[in-house]
């Protein structure tokens, strides 16, 4: 026998299944959200740890000769893809994904090999919609589902714990920092 239409039952079902559906991506966005919030303090995608190396000082000549001399002095794996001189004695060598900055007069070089942060790199890639294209639509659908999750969540319970009871205070508590922040900062 068919059960009569009950909007609360449908609401609960939508809330439950939408919750399962967006759980994974919500975690991805949550982790990436915290990571990119602090971009001023760190690079959320890669770890940059420059390594200082020393070598016997070399003469200042032309760019190609200096590049070859630094490669030999530091036993680097072959000539770089490209190079640049920032000052007569300072040469930079660029390899695939890493680089070397050397001061040939001082005999000091900095080797920088950025390493991707696993999980975070992929999370930020999706969160910041770097792939664009199809991902834009997936992210939009996720946004709609998240909205549905929020709205249906308001009406899951009735009575003392429902929206008419303590629920309304929690909703207001959640909105309060947003409103206060906007009022005080604008």
């Amino acid at each position: 026998m068919r059960r009569p239409w009950n909007w609360r039952r449908v609401n609960r079902a939508v809330h439950r299944d939408a919750g399962y559906l967006v759980a994974g991506l919500t975690l991805v966005y949550a982790i990436s959200g915290v990571a990119v919030n602090h971009r001023a303090d760190w690079n959320p995608n890669v770890i940059v740890a420059p390594e200082t190396r020393r070598f016997a000082p070399l003469p200042v000549t032309d760019r190609e000769t200096m590049a070859a001399a630094v490669v030999t002095a530091l036993s680097l794996p072959g000539l770089p893809r490209s190079s640049f001189r920032r000052a007569p004695e300072r040469i930079e060598l660029y390899y695939d994904g890493w680089s070397v900055e050397a001061d040939v007069t001082a005999g000091v070089a900095t080797v920088t090999r950025p390493r991707e942060r696993p999980v975070l790199r992929e999370s930020n890639y999706l969160h910041l919609n770097e792939p664009k294209g199809a991902w834009t639509w997936i992210a939009d659908a996720y946004g709609v589902l998240l909205g549905a999750l929020a709205v249906t969540g308001l009406f899951v319970l009735r009575g003392h714990n429902g929206l008419a009871g303590r629920g309304k205070w929690w909703v207001m508590a959640g909105l309060l920092p947003v409103v206060l922040f906007l009022l005080l900062r604008r």
């Binding site: 890669v46 390899y95 695939d96 994904g97 680089s99």
Partner: peptide, 23 residues
Amino acid sequence: KEFQTIQIKVDDGVMVFPLEAKG
């Protein structure tokens, strides 16, 4: 010209140039 560079600045988040683009 040797020893000369120019900076391309973009607003934060509008474009993100990757570190591996160096070179």
